[in-house]
Amino acid sequence: MITFINRFDVTGPAAEFEEAFDTTSAFFAAQPGFIRHRLLQHVDAPHLYVNIADWDDQDSFQKALSRPEFAAHRARLRALSSSDPNLYTPLLERVAR
């Protein structure tokens, strides 16, 4: 499993960004290898968001990004925000008992 973390600094209307993200989320959810994601909003700086997405593997993630349909999603999100996307390998997870 790999984890994709993308920090967004929203410069456009928040509602428009959230709607664009929801549409993009539905696109990714339909791709092979997608497991789950969460969109988080900063408590004290509501223009900052973080997307945390889990994928089966890096190849599945890269294939989803390379699909021609993704270009429109990317363009819409970039028009509303700047971002800092990165891939991570999970190392430790602890759950409350």
Rank of each mutant, 00 (worst) to 15 (best):
I5H: 05
R94L: 09
L65A: 04
E18C: 11
Q41F: 00
T23S: 14
L77Y: 00
Y49K: 05
T24A: 09
P46K: 08
R7E: 04
A20R: 01
E18A: 08
G33L: 03
R76E: 15
L77V: 08
A15R: 12
F17V: 02
G12F: 00
R94S: 11
L87V: 06
R78Q: 15
Q62V: 09
L91W: 04
R78S: 15
A30F: 03
S25M: 05
A14M: 07
T24P: 02
A30G: 12
H73S: 13
F61T: 03
E18D: 14
S66N: 15
R97D: 14
F28C: 02
T3K: 15
R38Y: 06
Y49D: 02
H42A: 09
L48G: 05
R38N: 12
S66P: 13
R74M: 10
D57H: 03
F4H: 05
S82P: 07
I52T: 13
N6I: 01
S83F: 01
P13K: 13
A71T: 14
Q31I: 04
R7Y: 01
A26C: 10
R7V: 07
Q58V: 05
N51H: 07
A96I: 12
T24S: 11
R38L: 10
R7D: 05
D59R: 06
F4C: 02
N86A: 14
A26L: 10
S82A: 13
E93F: 05
P85W: 06
Q58C: 04
H47G: 11
V50D: 02
A15W: 03
Q58F: 01
S60V: 02
E19M: 09
V43K: 12
H47E: 15
F70E: 12
L39V: 11
E69M: 07
P46A: 06
K63P: 03
D59S: 05
T11R: 09
V43S: 11
N51M: 06
D56K: 09
Q41S: 05
Q58D: 06
E93T: 15
V50I: 15
S81C: 08
F21M: 05
P68F: 02
A53F: 00
F34N: 08
H37V: 07
S60Y: 00
Q31W: 02
A64E: 01
I2T: 05
L48V: 15
H73L: 07
I2S: 02
L40M: 12
P13S: 14
F70N: 14
Q31S: 11
A53E: 00
H37C: 10
T89D: 08
F17G: 01
G33F: 01
G12Y: 00
V50S: 06
L91G: 14
A15G: 09
S82Y: 04
F27D: 05
A15C: 08
D59W: 00
D56V: 10
A64M: 04
T24R: 01
H73E: 13
R67Y: 07
F27M: 03
E18F: 02
Y88S: 05
A29W: 10
T11F: 03
R7T: 10
A15L: 07
T24L: 00
A64K: 01
A79W: 07
L80H: 07
D9H: 11
R38G: 08
P46T: 11
Y88I: 02
R76G: 09
A79C: 10
